[in-house]
């Protein structure tokens, strides 16, 4: 129960700063694209960082 709550809080905090779940990404790649090698965690993090800040979607409000 506590552990599940902590995991949710962690996932929320990370998504707040634009880092989606790496586990969900691995799961998606395993299910849909088993023939493609997934990015490792470091590459995934850099990719998401660039996607959040490096393009038009700098999404935040006044």
């Amino acid at each position: 129960m506590i552990r599940a709550l902590y995991a949710k809080a962690r996932e929320t905090a990370l998504l707040m700063v634009g880092v989606p779940s790496y586990d969900a990404y691995r799961q998606h790649m395993a299910e849909r694209h088993p023939d493609h090698a997934p990015m490792d965690e470091r590459a995934f993090f850099r990719d998401r960082q660039e996607a959040r800040y490096g393009s038009k979607g700098g999404g935040r409000c006044c």
Partner: peptide, 16 residues
């Protein structure tokens, strides 16, 4: 695609 399009728990997405 596991990156931009990810089905996300509603509470987590609310926070985001």
């Amino acid at each position: 695609d596991g990156l931009d399009y990810v089905a996300t728990d509603r509470n987590v997405l609310f926070g985001h």
